[in-house]
Design a protein around this nucleic acid. Sequence first.
DNA 1: GTCTATACGCCGATAGAC
DNA 2: GTCTATCGGCGTATAGAC
Lengths: 227, 227
Amino acid sequence: MASAGDSSVKQNNKQRILEATIQLMNEQGGAVGTSQVADHLGISPGNLYYHFRNREEILRELFERLVQELDEVLRVEAGEPIPVARLVACYTGGTRVLWRYRFFFASAVDFIGRDPWLAQRYLDFSRQSQHYMRLIIQSAMKESPGPVKATARQTAHLAEIMWVLWVSWPRYSELAQPGRKLGEADIGHGLEQIAFVLAPYLGEIYYKQVLQRVHRFVKGLEREAQT
Amino acid sequence: MASAGDSSVKQNNKQRILEATIQLMNEQGGAVGTSQVADHLGISPGNLYYHFRNREEILRELFERLVQELDEVLRVEAGEPIPVARLVACYTGGTRVLWRYRFFFASAVDFIGRDPWLAQRYLDFSRQSQHYMRLIIQSAMKESPGPVKATARQTAHLAEIMWVLWVSWPRYSELAQPGRKLGEADIGHGLEQIAFVLAPYLGEIYYKQVLQRVHRFVKGLEREAQT
DNA sequence: GTCTATACGCCGATAGAC
DNA sequence: GTCTATCGGCGTATAGAC
């Protein structure tokens, strides 16, 4: 325990730098610099540059985290049956991740414009996520066909639309509520809106169930926030 | 004509600065600076600062243009009947404007975070636009009720969803097609996707008509591009 | 691992000549 | 209206002591 404890303490600043970057960029936008991060943590610029070669490397590492965390939540196999509970778990879990890294989507154009490597990785990420979403939507519609039937092509459209909404909603919420601190209510509203796109393709009962579980998730967030 | 000609020539650089800013920010992102704009035009920094007090003022002026141009296209009266042609005109015309000023939405968080005045104006703008969209959607659905019926509340949801998609799509297209030059095909695809959200609430014939006209609009863009 | 000190460059902005 | 010259500030990144 002594050696494990030691090494984790030693590497502590690296994690703190990553966390601080997330926090500051979520609050102030993607233009936050290395000096601001260092200042905020009360460490020296030199210290920060001991842990990371440059600013780009911080962003890349944060992006890899985002990718992995979302993949863990969204990963489904083709043909795998997806009950309501699972559908909503993907959905709310994904929202958690996208909310946590919302700064990234807000500044994606800037980040990607300066780092071709990131551009390619982001593209793969976007495609993979939409692939999962198609599978999930397909399964949900099979389980409960709604008043409107969807072809495979339309399923692809739905997945793309929902993906764009999903990653855009945090930023939109921030702009729609300037100054105010954002929280559970906004997340919940976004979740409902995105689910609404799917509504005509799901049965009414199924859709109600989804909304109910989403609502329960939002309540859970509130409880967490009070802790 | 001489005096009018003179003054317009004198003020030419001001317009050129605004146009260059739009172009550069669309190409390189919202972080483009005053010096880059001046360089690109082959004029001096001092010249630029003769026409604008500071960088902020350029952005404000561009924003006001955006607001006005979109308002001209989208303005409808409550209760005004809206035939398909008009619906599609709002829609394609709006897309033109949003595409032209796409840099603004891509960097809205940054811009707004540094300029409270802009934050408030953007909020008004967003609300007003969604208001128009509600009226338009309502009218369209009245004219041709689809397989799913929408309540007033749902109409508001639809308007918000479509607004978010509308302003987010240009940026999404850019990220989805890195490097490639974007054009009519991408605009057309976005238009179809956003219309798709509305599909269940419109009659099939009406929806087909919309798609047809959208398609015609895209063809028109291609013809323009060749000129 | 962490610090201090420092170099370099870019951008926003102003002063003053033409 | 336009230019040249210049200042100050901030952000990235490195060198070298502790």
